[in-house]
Computed example of a mutant assay.
Amino acid sequence: MTKPIRKAILPVAGLGTRFLPATKAVPKEMLTIVDRPIIQYVVDEARAAGIEHIVFVTGRNKQVIEDHFDVAYELEDTLKARNKTAALDLLEKHRPIPGSTSFTRQQAPLGLGHAIWCARDIIGDEPFAILLPDVIIKSQVSCLKQMVDLYNGTGGNVLAVEEVPDDQTQNYGIVELAEKINENAAHISNMVEKPAPGTAPSNLMITGRYILQPQIFDLLSKQDTGAGGEIQLTDSMLKLMETQPFSSIKFEGRSFDCGSKAGFLSANIAFGLDDPKLASEILPFMREMLDQPEAAE
């Protein structure tokens, strides 16, 4: 019988240099998509999948993330005095219950694998999820929930994947598939980090959502460095694959890489159009901009 997925790690220690100067004083995870910070979308996805405890692996100058998920007494007292019940309800909806979040520091930028290893004592001896906060996923059913549903039937380790153009596979971690589990899921036989052009085993990239068994921590504890002189999560996953099964799921939904400016802007448009009032205001502007001669160049 598989152990349930109760905990999730969100590595949020990155510097966000691609968004300077905006991220000089504001963590990139707190940049907003419409009216919510990026990190809130990721937390909401985890909670929709039944995650009970979220571990944030932070770095310096990330205190505002912890504050975001805390009570803001002065703000809430002011809202109460002004009878702003809708705003109060919104704040309460997004506030985690006491004891359901933990924060630990990654004291040096040694890679994603090192960030995950920093949460080892909080996760303990149980399977867990990883959600990379640069990626938000727009879907009817939480991407992580889709993964948990697959995990409940297969056990082992599960990765979310999606198709990318063949000429872009060298930019991502790519999986090689074995036999199918169902229409959208399959066993994984190999993973290649940023394969050379023309050598990728498929066009399926790892999206930034993982379910892993706790034995990954033993592999990460060796602190072996890989590409870029960093401790790479993929390297330890490949070693874990030698003794444990890995599965992939082509999730229903669309991902947005909010670590890039184009992905960030695209996410704002996509989520903004979900609001009928906003859509009615911005669609005419978008059409006007597209009709300008410069847009066709």
Rank of each mutant, 00 (worst) to 15 (best):
residue 130 I to E: 03
residue 254 R to T: 05
residue 41 Y to P: 00
residue 212 L to I: 10
residue 70 D to E: 14
residue 64 V to K: 14
residue 277 K to F: 12
residue 82 R to V: 02
residue 239 K to Q: 15
residue 88 L to Q: 07
residue 169 T to E: 02
residue 251 F to S: 00
residue 295 A to M: 08
residue 130 I to Q: 10
residue 167 D to Y: 14
residue 249 I to P: 07
residue 227 A to N: 09
residue 70 D to F: 11
residue 262 A to W: 12
residue 53 H to P: 02
residue 268 N to R: 15
residue 260 S to R: 11
residue 182 N to R: 07
residue 37 P to W: 09
residue 38 I to C: 00
residue 199 T to N: 00
residue 108 A to V: 07
residue 32 T to R: 15
residue 134 D to R: 13
residue 168 Q to E: 10
residue 74 E to Q: 06
residue 115 A to Y: 05
residue 266 S to R: 14
residue 67 D to F: 10
residue 126 E to K: 12
residue 247 S to L: 01
residue 81 A to Q: 14
residue 98 P to L: 04
residue 47 R to W: 12
residue 217 F to H: 04
residue 16 G to P: 02
residue 151 Y to G: 05
residue 19 F to Y: 13
residue 98 P to E: 04
residue 295 A to V: 12
residue 93 K to S: 13
residue 284 P to M: 10
residue 68 H to N: 01
residue 43 V to I: 09
residue 282 I to T: 08
residue 104 T to N: 10
residue 234 T to H: 12
residue 158 V to N: 05
residue 224 D to I: 10
residue 63 Q to C: 00
residue 91 L to F: 14
residue 184 N to S: 11
residue 268 N to D: 04
residue 2 T to S: 05
residue 40 Q to I: 11
residue 218 D to I: 01
residue 294 E to L: 10
residue 114 H to Q: 06
residue 109 P to A: 03
residue 176 E to Q: 15
residue 110 L to I: 04
residue 192 V to T: 15
residue 242 E to G: 04
residue 61 N to Q: 10
residue 184 N to D: 10
residue 110 L to W: 14
residue 121 D to T: 12
residue 88 L to C: 03
residue 111 G to P: 04
residue 261 K to T: 01
residue 237 M to C: 15
residue 151 Y to S: 02
residue 7 K to Y: 05
residue 28 K to P: 06
residue 12 V to M: 06
residue 47 R to T: 01
residue 255 S to G: 09
residue 91 L to A: 08
residue 95 R to W: 11
residue 181 I to T: 12
residue 250 K to R: 14
residue 72 A to S: 12
residue 270 A to Q: 03
residue 113 G to E: 02
residue 44 D to I: 06
residue 137 I to N: 11
residue 79 L to A: 06
residue 107 Q to K: 13
residue 209 R to S: 00
residue 236 S to Y: 07
residue 260 S to Y: 03
residue 65 I to V: 14
residue 30 M to Q: 11
residue 222 K to Q: 10
residue 199 T to Q: 10
residue 25 A to F: 08
residue 200 A to M: 06
residue 103 F to L: 04
residue 79 L to T: 04
residue 125 D to K: 14
residue 250 K to H: 02
residue 32 T to W: 13
residue 204 L to C: 02
residue 187 H to R: 15
residue 7 K to V: 01
residue 145 K to Q: 07
residue 14 G to R: 13
residue 45 E to Q: 14
residue 105 R to G: 00
residue 185 A to L: 05
